[in-house]
């Protein structure tokens, strides 16, 4: 289960809309119970409508800051601009961490569809996303 706030959800949607026509992306920092404390938007350094890659310097900085604050990088979000919020074969092959939450936003339809998955050894399992008011 992944828990985010409305404000965090809106920040992710805004990041992905701003990135158009490219995919948007960013990191999720939180605790290992799946509660997100911070959404960290990244530039999509792949600059592509079909691929995303988190900026490598931001990645290092975010890992270090999370560690300093007793937190963890617990996942990543990215948008699919013209397809559903479901992991693509590329997403599955490149999913680095079985403990991570892979949050996908589909901008294909309005309103934005947001879904989250665990990807373990190539197997995709959807998980519940709780959006809290605060």
């Amino acid at each position: 289960m992944l828990t985010i706030s409305k404000r965090q959800r809106d920040a992710m949607i805004a990041t992905c809309v701003r990135a158009l026509p490219d995919e948007g992306c960013g990191l999720l920092v939180g605790s290992n119970d799946g509660v997100v404390d911070e959404v960290v938007p990244s530039e999509n350094v792949a600059h592509s409508a079909k691929l995303y890659e988190i900026d490598s310097k931001l990645l290092l900085r975010t890992f270090r800051q999370a560690e300093d604050n007793g937190k963890e990088v617990i996942g990543v979000f990215h948008s699919h601009t013209h397809s559903d919020a479901y992991p693509s074969p590329t997403d599955v092959v490149q999913a680095p961490d079985p403990a991570w939450h892979y949050l996908l936003l589909s901008l294909r339809l309005v309103p934005t569809v947001l879904r989250s998955y665990a990807i373990v050894d190539g197997v995709i399992n959807e998980e519940e996303v709780v959006v809290e008011e605060a």
């Binding site: 890659e53 988190i54 074969p89 680095p96």
Partner: peptide, 13 residues
């Protein structure tokens, strides 16, 4: 020296 997995992926083509 720090190693981190690249975080990347993409949509269905």
């Amino acid at each position: 020296v720090t190693l981190l997995p690249a975080v990347a992926g993409g949509a269905l083509s």
